[in-house]
């Protein structure tokens, strides 16, 4: 049976890095990915949920049970969670079968072999990790975590050391096994594709803070912050400056700031690929053309504006090829705060 995971006002100080306060709610049976750039604190958060680290403040509940909080620390083994580590973290002196039978005392060798066969590891049953590929090691790490029938499965960048051509197989295995066992899964990654492949809910982190959380589709289509748009969709986020009277200046002109917006300097003009187009006129910011990309929707140009990369639609009949062009918006401007407050 899957369980909910609730993190409330969690904080942790590690050297100069401060995590939190973070509050996160994961529904039973859901697949949630905590995404963010390296150093954003997502792995620390996952380790606190797993019980490998203790938070300084805040509380964690798994199901109805408090597992971390004031005066409470439940050991990892007693939390009912399984953890798939980065790079497998396998035991170098044990074979694949021994990994499973040691990790799950009730598992017989025959059961372990059956599990290995399902994961395509039958031939590796008596091999040690040193003789396995990255993909095989990660599969074994997944089986080890699931062998104990956890109610919550935690995955720390499980695809990082896996070859591109093996990723789909591993994604399918994770989703199949999690569905079969009705497990709540929480994934940590800085890879957008990995997150979207393995999760339906996303929680975006930056600098130790949770930026926003929601359904993956919603966050992709309607991000509430410029950071989320940049991280999840590679959007360009151009600087703006406040003009007063609720107006802001952007490289594409002056616009009204959205209602209930934060200080204007915190706003960014967010451009998804195709939100701008190159033209031969003299209006709009000048952009340096970096590359020409053919695509399903016609030719796109990767252009540099200030320190941002904008993927713009190419003009139908470009006349200038001297490496620069002018850009204009194709729709209404999208002005978003850089980070939620």
């Amino acid at each position: 049976m899957s369980l909910a995971v609730t993190v409330t006002d969690l904080e942790q100080q590690k050297g100069a890095f401060h995590l939190g306060p973070v509050s996160l709610s994961v529904k039973p049976g859901s697949r949630t990915a905590i995404v963010g750039p390296s150093g954003s604190g997502k792995t620390s958060l996952l380790r606190c949920i797993a019980g490998l680290e203790r938070p300084d403040r805040g509380a964690i509940r798994i199901g109805e049970r408090a597992v971390a909080g004031a005066g409470v620390h439940v050991e990892p083994v007693d939390r009912g969670v399984g953890l798939v580590f980065q790079d497998g973290a396998l035991w170098p002196h044990l074979t694949a079968v021994q990994h499973l039978t040691f990790a799950a005392p009730k598992l017989s060798r025959a059961d372990a072999l059956q599990l290995l066969e399902r994961a395509g590891l039958a031939a590796q049953a008596d091999k040690k990790p040193g003789r396995m590929s990255g993909g095989e090691a990660q599969r074994l790490g997944l089986l080890r975590a699931l062998a104990q029938h956890p109610q919550v499965l935690l995955l720390d960048e499980p695809l990082r050391s896996v070859d591109v051509h093996q990723r789909d197989g591993l994604v399918l295995l994770v989703r199949t096994l999690c569905d079969e066992r009705d497990v709540t899964s929480i994934l940590v990654t800085h890879d957008r594709d990995e997150a979207l492949a393995l999760a339906d809910e996303l929680a975006v982190m930056r600098d130790g803070q949770l930026v926003e959380q929601g359904a993956a589709v919603t966050l992709l289509e309607q991000p509430r912050t410029a950071f989320t748009a940049a991280f999840l969709r590679g959007a360009a986020c151009l600087q703006t400056s406040a003009l007063g009277g609720g107006r802001v200046r952007t490289p594409f002109g002056e616009f009204d700031a959205p209602a209930a917006a934060p200080a204007a300097n915190e706003l960014r003009l967010v451009l998804f690929p195709g939100d701008a187009e190159a033209h031969d006129g003299v209006d709009g910011p000048e952009a340096r053309i970096l590359a020409r990309l053919p695509g399903e929707h016609g030719m796109r140009w990767r252009c540099a504006v200030d320190d941002q990369i904008v993927v713009a639609k190419a003009p139908a009949n470009p006349t200038h090829h001297n490496g620069t062009t002018r850009l204009r918006l194709t729709g209404s401007p999208r002005l978003l705060p850089w980070q939620a407050r």
């Binding site: 797993a50 019980g51 490998l52 050991e75 990892p76 083994v77 969670v81 399984g82 953890l83 580590f85 980065q86 790079d87 973290a89 396998l90 035991w91 170098p92 002196h93 040691f102 990790a103 799950a104 005392p105 080890r144 975590a145 104990q148």
Partner: peptide, 28 residues
């Protein structure tokens, strides 16, 4: 030289602490 993460993985194994220590810490 032994990976710390491999030892951490042992903390999820439902076996007696002495058994875990002998198998995962001493044996390697």
């Amino acid at each position: 030289r032994l990976p710390v993460a491999a030892e951490e993985a042992g903390r999820f194994v439902p076996r007696h602490a002495v058994h875990r220590a002998l198998r995962l810490h001493v044996q390697p």
